[in-house]
């Protein structure tokens, strides 16, 4: 299977949101995006951008579903925003039907995906975020499968890299 890795540096939350919006614009049916990175690294900010790129209505507020685990938004493609911060045991994922969500035609964005690496589908986009300094974030994009590889190519191009 095709795998690529690319690094993108963002210098502000606005730039992070722009990266998200570009991703959202090119996402296709059934995409799964796994986000990893510590608290405050910008996972939710990136997801907000992705939602904009997916044309989720502007009046819908995108917040991290820390307590509900899953939020669902309508858009060009339906977006499932999953937050696994409170998950202590993989069996707890059954109730939210994560397998079904990831296997659907909708887009799934998963925060704290490090907790379920072995349960991710073979084809997905993993984004690992590191904090460089107060404003700067290092995004490591790993595309697994042709669709994700193509997606990264398009993003890099539009982002100006």
């Amino acid at each position: 299977m095709k795998i690529t890795e690319h690094r993108i540096i963002s210098h502000s939350p606005e730039e992070t949101a722009r990266l998200g919006a570009i991703l959202g614009k090119y996402l296709s049916n059934g995409s799964v995006i796994a986000l990893t990175g510590e608290l405050g690294s910008g996972k939710t900010c990136l997801t907000q951008g992705i939602a904009r790129g997916l044309q989720v209505p502007e009046d819908l507020c995108i917040t991290s579903p820390t307590y509900t685990l899953v939020n669902e938004y309508p858009g060009r493609l339906r977006l499932f925003h999953v937050d696994l911060y409170r998950i202590e045991d993989v069996a707890e994922l059954d109730e939210i039907g994560l397998d079904e969500i990831m296997g659907s035609d909708d887009v799934t964005v998963i925060e704290w995906a490090e907790k379920i690496m072995e349960a991710l589908p073979k084809e997905c986009l993993c984004i690992s975020i590191s904090i460089v300094d107060d404003h700067t974030r290092d995004f490591l994009l790993t595309g697994c499968g042709q669709t994700a590889v193509d997606l990264i190519e398009k993003c890099l191009h539009e982002f100006g890299l």
Partner: peptide, 12 residues
């Protein structure tokens, strides 16, 4: 008893 979210998918 540890339910943390709405039930979805095949469990639902």
């Amino acid at each position: 008893t540890g339910l943390k979210s709405d039930v979805r998918g095949r469990f639902k």
